[in-house]
Amino acid sequence: MTRFLIRRLLGAIPLLLGVAVLSFVFMQLAPGGPDALFARNARMSEEQLQAIRHNMGLDRPVPEQLVTWLGNILQGDLGISYTQYRPVSEAIWDVVPNTLLLMGTGMVLSLIAALLFGVLAARRQNGVFDLVASFVSYFGLAMPVFWFGLMLQLLFAVRLGWLPSAGMSSAGGGGFWDVARHLVLPAFTIAIGSIAGWSRYVRSSTIESLNQDYVRTARAKGMDEQRVLVGHVLRNALIPLVTVVGIDVPLYLTGAVLTETVFSWPGMGRLFFDALTVRDYPILMGILLLGAVLIVLGNLIADVLYGVLDPRISY
């Protein structure tokens, strides 16, 4: 197990390095890359631009820039934000907890809903609940996340006025219940895609385990259906779900940008969107890399958990 863990961790390093190098190359392909913010400023003279380029090291040969950039990243130095005038790592670190709160709530919500819907649908295959659930989940997968967010905002915040429409806390508020109220709509928005996807997944893996011999044995022993479902079927159906959750991290990252933009949630996605509009290049690259780290980490955790949960798998 430890050896497997170490091997996987080591394997993640070239992957992240590849992402970093490729991002760099990609950005080099874009004319007017890192200095776009300054180059497009009409009031900036040629000498000033050259001075800035020199300070940023943009007048150096490209391979040298790449090595310097990689070296800085490895030391945790992501550069200085053009618009916030402080280290990028600091700017990102300030908002990461908010995004993790949003993503975490969304994932928990999704897991609960997916297990509930999936098992109920599988229990009576092709029953009324199953048909309704699969139709709803088809819709959930086809809907644009941000549009669902807009519709929730329109219905529950604007028309009914039950919940706040934007932000993370009211002016002067910020207590637990205040944040919780602000969290409801964004959390549902970010979760909708995975509720739909995961519940279909739980449904099919539950149906698969329902047909196993050990389920027949448990029923033959006279065990009541409730305990068969929870103790025997669900426990086995859950294991593959772990992988799916890990794989869906990119979905949640995209979801975070959209949800936070729609609901003005002060997180990483919102920071990213704001940085896009002002072309704050260091912030953008920093969040891009952090996103890649989260994706790789998600896959890694899924792999490890899979081994922990399923004793049949040995590494």
């Binding site: 490729l22 950005m27 874009a30 995209t254 990213f272 072309r279 891009l288 996103g291 890649a292």
Partner: peptide
């Protein structure tokens, strides 16, 4: 491992 949408947004916002 790429957050593809992020990369595309950066690219299109600059380019």
């Amino acid at each position: 491992a790429f957050p593809a949408i992020f990369l595309l947004l950066i690219f299109f916002s600059i380019q």
